[in-house]
């Protein structure tokens, strides 16, 4: 039987959750026995080549490219997991949500104390920012949530091994943290 396929995605986050995936240490050898990785920043595969069993997404949704890729994950993943505080709540990037976008850009690129000859970037290759940073579940349906900043390697390992063996995802108290 072919190994289950896993994909990971990165949106508006800090890559800390992906670091935490790698933090499973030598268990990554067991993981490679258990699953095959499709699209992921870790192997630099950019596009889905086929539907996958489990998708893990890190980061909230702050621009049009995030929306496009998150929808692509939803279409291609049987199970989609929001990984980490930003994917679950918007996280640290969502601190900008109480400030209008125009004011954020004005402060960052024009009025900031270290800005010289400021200009708000408008290159067509740069994704367009959304009015707010949204948690993933406000954009697509999410099947499981793993909070944490980042979620510990143990949580990620426990979730993946439970889902791969068809067991219910029952996390012990000490594993669920919002920070």
């Amino acid at each position: 039987m072919a190994k289950p396929l896993v994909a990971t995605g990165h949106f508006t986050g800090c890559f800390g959750c992906h670091m935490s995936i790698l933090d499973i240490d030598e268990r990554i050898l067991d993981l490679v026995e258990l699953v095959e990785f499709d699209k992921s920043p870790i192997n630099d595969i950019k596009r889905f080549s086929r539907p996958v069993d489990i998708g893990l997404v890190e980061g909230g949704v702050s621009n049009d490219e995030n929306v496009e890729f998150l929808r692509m994950f939803r279409e291609n993943c049987k199970i989609l997991i929001a990984l980490g505080a930003c994917a679950v709540t918007g996280g640290v990037p969502s601190i900008r949500n109480t400030v209008p976008l125009r004011e954020c850009l004005q402060e960052a690129f024009i009025d900031g104390p270290t800005v010289v000859d400021g200009k708000i970037p408008d290159d067509p290759d740069i994704p367009i920012l959304l009015d707010k940073v949204y948690p993933c579940h406000e954009v697509v349906k999410i099947d499981y949530f793993l909070p944490g900043c980042p979620p510990s390697a143990d949580v990620i390992w426990a979730a993946l091994t439970a889902l791969l063996s068809g067991k219910p995802l029952d996390l012990p108290y000490e594993m669920v943290k919002y920070d």
Partner: peptide, 28 residues
């Protein structure tokens, strides 16, 4: 606006602890 990752009360917060106790993983 509860940004747990940057809050100095995280881990000692009764709101957060209540969410843990009641098994809240994400708001709906």
């Amino acid at each position: 606006n509860h940004y747990c990752p940057t809050c100095e009360h995280s881990g000692n917060c009764e709101l957060q602890a209540m969410a843990y106790r009641l098994g809240l993983l994400a708001p709906t």
